[in-house]
Computed example of a mutant assay.
Amino acid sequence: MGLGAQVLSTKQWMRLHVSYKQHGSGPEFWQAYRDILDTVSQHGDAAAAANELARLAVQFGVTETALFV
């Protein structure tokens, strides 16, 4: 499973993955998602971060489809 084009750090990717494994698509997962998006957006390309997180949400099975920017 790849991490994308260095948009997310390994730590961020693992946080999201663990959150999904523990909470499924519950509020805890979406809070981790938003926290990661906020952090990455402050220090890099917000659109790339949003796209990478959306791709991962589909890959994990949280949602069937995602919108990309």
Rank of each mutant, 00 (worst) to 15 (best):
S9L: 13
A5T: 15
A57C: 07
M14T: 13
A5C: 14
M1G: 08
G24Y: 00
D38Y: 07
S9I: 10
L53S: 12
D35I: 09
A57L: 08
Q12D: 13
R55T: 08
G2E: 13
D45I: 02
F68K: 14
Q59D: 14
R34H: 13
G26H: 12
T39N: 06
A46T: 14
Q22Y: 05
R15I: 12
D35K: 11
G4I: 01
A46N: 05
T65K: 09
G4C: 06
A54C: 12
G4R: 01
V69Y: 15
Q59W: 10
E28S: 11
S19I: 04
T39V: 11
V7S: 03
V18L: 11
F60G: 03
V62T: 01
T65A: 06
A49Q: 00
G2F: 12
V58Q: 05
A32P: 12
I36V: 07
G44H: 07
W13G: 15
V40T: 00
V18D: 12
E52L: 03
A46P: 07
T65G: 05
M14C: 11
V18R: 03
D35M: 09
L67Q: 11
Y33T: 02
H43N: 04
S25C: 06
E28W: 10
L56R: 06
S19A: 06
E64K: 13
Q6P: 05
G26F: 05
V69P: 15
L56D: 01
Y20E: 01
A49P: 10
E52K: 04
F29Y: 05
L37T: 08
T63K: 09
M1F: 04
H23D: 04
L37H: 14
Q6Y: 08
Q6S: 15
M1R: 08
N51Q: 14
A47W: 07
Y20P: 01
R15G: 07
S19Q: 07
Q6N: 12
T10E: 13
Q22R: 07
V40S: 08
M1K: 08
A32W: 01
G24H: 05
L67F: 13
W13Y: 13
Q31C: 09
L53T: 11
A47P: 12
A48S: 06
A32D: 00
K11A: 15
A48L: 07
W30A: 10
S9A: 12
S19P: 05
A66P: 11
L53R: 00
I36M: 00
E28F: 10
E52Y: 10
H17P: 02
Q12I: 07
Q42N: 12
Q42T: 05
S19V: 02
S41V: 01
A57R: 03
G44Y: 04
D38P: 03
F60T: 02
L8N: 06
S9T: 15
V40R: 03
Q42W: 04
Y33I: 06
M14Q: 15
R34W: 11
I36K: 04
H17E: 13
K21N: 03
R15M: 14
V18N: 07
I36E: 03
A66H: 05
Q42C: 02
L8W: 05
L67M: 13
P27E: 10
G24I: 06
H23E: 10
Q42E: 14
Y33A: 06
P27W: 06
H43A: 06
